[in-house]
Every structure is written in structure tokens, then in C-alpha cells.
């Protein structure tokens, strides 16, 4: 059974879900925008019989603290630092990472800084290649290039309840298979006072992720981590070429597409859980044999 916890990391509360035996291999799940560990609610029970599954909420998201922007700079580098310190706080020093959307630049930073801690990587619509970025990023790129008030204000469209729902249902074959509570909860948390400015700060800092893509790619080339890409192929933000590109740098990368959207777990959590279980079992067994 999943349990729900909070720990103090660098003076702020980090909320996390946890399930599975703590003697089992660790799997760290890193969520995306504008959601939280809630996105893993269906996946966690399907892996917790074999893995110690941990899903924190990033600062500013879900039930973790959302410190004032004057006290905490909302950058992906700081999110990665917080998550690294979180893993130390809860005593998890080696783990596989599942990265989605914002979770990817956070998780890949952890891998760059502490490659010895990463046992395997699962990227679900977690991008590291320019060819993975759709034209949906254009307004955001405009803001990177000219960080004006007007360009910032234009991105508020991303924060509306309509936009949040759209991110969940776009590219899904049957909208009737998407549970409404996911976007309802995300919208409720986005509507908290001040959360809009936090999200706009992170959208601005997303440029730093793109700047790091060559470093992430170098890491894939040199370390050749066990890597599984599971990708909703109709994702309006991250395109299938971004998934295929993993194979260019890492011949061991495995890529699987699903006929669904950005939040692929909402419709395909069973299939994705099966794929992850098979992949982790194979990768971790091979590592144990090699050691």
C-alpha cells in the first residue's frame, strides 16, 4: 500500500509517496508540469511488489512547500539540488529514475552530477534532444529570447484550467478514458496565490535545460546507462524523434511508443508498468551479474 510522507529538506517540506519493500531496488519517480506525484497513483501499486518506489513532489508543486520566490530561486538546477538532498535525507543512494516532462531535466542533472547513483533511466516523454521539441514551445522560446513582461504574460495561457485539461486529453484516442480528477487537482494547486509566478519562473528557466542537452547527450554516449524510453506518440510538446534520438547516443536504449498523449500513464499505465518491470528486471540482473 502506498503511504504518504513529508521530510524537511534544506528547510522546506518535501512531500512524497512511497511503496514497496525498502530492501528492494529503488525507483525514483519524477513528475512533470503542472502536476505532482499524483500522476503516479496508478503506476506505483503495479511496481511496488518488486521495487521500492519513491515519488517526491518538486518544490512549488503538489504538497511540497512552495517557498516564496524571494527565498528560493525556481530554477531546474535548484529543483535538482533539492531532489538530490531529498534522496540523501531519506537514505536512498542508488536508484533507477523515471523521468517525465520537468522530471527529465531534474533527473538528468542528477545523473550528470552523480552518475554512480543511477542504476537505470526510464524516460516517459522526458526530453533531451532539440528534435523532440514541438512548435508548441515557440511562445516559450520567444520569452527566453526576449524575457519581457508581455512575453511572460502571454504564457499565462499555460496556467488556465482549460490548458491543463487540454494537456491531458490532447492526442488521447478516447477522451472518456481520462480521469477528470487529475487535471482538476492540478488546476486547484495551480490556482494557489503566487503559484502562477513560480510556474512562469520555471518556464523561463527551461532554457537552461535546452542549453544542457549536449551535456546530457554526452553522458548518454559515455556512460551508456540502461535506458528505456516509453513515449506517448501524440504528445503535443515532445515529439517521437526526441525518443528515437536516445538510440543515436546510446545503442542500448530501447524505445517504445504508445498511441496516446503527453500524460501517457493516464491511459496506458498497465502497459507501461509491464514494460518497466521487464526492463528493470533485465537491466538490474545484468548489472548484478557484471558486478
Amino acid at each position: 500500500m502506498t503511504s504518504f510522507h513529508a521530510v524537511n529538506v534544506d528547510g522546506q517540506k518535501i512531500f512524497y509517496r512511497q511503496a514497496g519493500p525498502d530492501t528492494a531496488p529503488n525507483l525514483l519517480l519524477l513528475h512533470g508540469f503542472p502536476t505532482s506525484s499524483h500522476m503516479f497513483r496508478n503506476l506505483i501499486p503495479l511496481l511496488a511488489d518488486r521495487y521500492h518506489v519513491i515519488a517526491p513532489d518538486l518544490p512549488g508543486f503538489g504538497f511540497s512547500d512552495a517557498p516564496d520566490r524571494k527565498r528560493f530561486r525556481y530554477t531546474f538546477e535548484n529543483l535538482a539540488k533539492t531532489i538530490h538532498n531529498f534522496t540523501r535525507t531519506i537514505g536512498v543512494d542508488r536508484y533507477a529514475i523515471y523521468v517525465f516532462d520537468y522530471g527529465a531535466p531534474v533527473g538528468f542533472r542528477l545523473a550528470l552530477a552523480h552518475p554512480e547513483q543511477i542504476t537505470a533511466i526510464i524516460s516517459q516523454n522526458g526530453n533531451a534532444y532539440e528534435e523532440g521539441l514541438s512548435q508548441g514551445w515557440n511562445p516559450i522560446q520567444t520569452y527566453w529570447k526576449e524575457p519581457t513582461g508581455a512575453n511572460r504574460a502571454a504564457l499565462r495561457d499555460f496556467l488556465t484550467p482549460e490548458s491543463t485539461r487540454w494537456q491531458y486529453v490532447y492526442g488521447v484516442n478516447d477522451e472518456n478514458q481520462v480521469a477528470p480528477e487529475a487535471y482538476t487537482l492540478d488546476s486547484a494547486l495551480l490556482a494557489r496565490p503566487g503559484n502562477d509566478e513560480i510556474q512562469l519562473d520555471l518556464l523561463l528557466d527551461y532554457a537552461s535545460n535546452v542549453a544542457l542537452y549536449p551535456k546530457f547527450q554526452e553522458y548518454f554516449r559515455t556512460r551508456k546507462p540502461s535506458l528505456l524510453a516509453v513515449w506517448g506518440k501524440n504528445d503535443p510538446f515532445f515529439l517521437p524523434p526526441g525518443a528515437e534520438a536516445f538510440k543515436r547516443d546510446n545503442p542500448n536504449a530501447e524505445v517504445h511508443f504508445y498511441d496516446t498523449g503527453h500524460f501517457a500513464l493516464e491511459t496506458h499505465y498497465r502497459e507501461i508498468a509491464d514494460r518497466i518491470g521487464e526492463f528493470l528486471n533485465r537491466s538490474l540482473t545484468a548489472q548484478a551479474n557484471a558486478a
Binding site: E130, N138, Q141, T142, K145, A207, V210, A211, Y213
Partner: peptide, 8 residues
């Protein structure tokens, strides 16, 4: 901005 090519 890094290596990102703006194609706007």
C-alpha cells in the same frame, strides 16, 4: 539560451 536555435 545555449545551443537552442530559435525558429520562431
Amino acid at each position: 539560451m545555449g545551443s537552442f536555435k530559435l525558429s520562431c
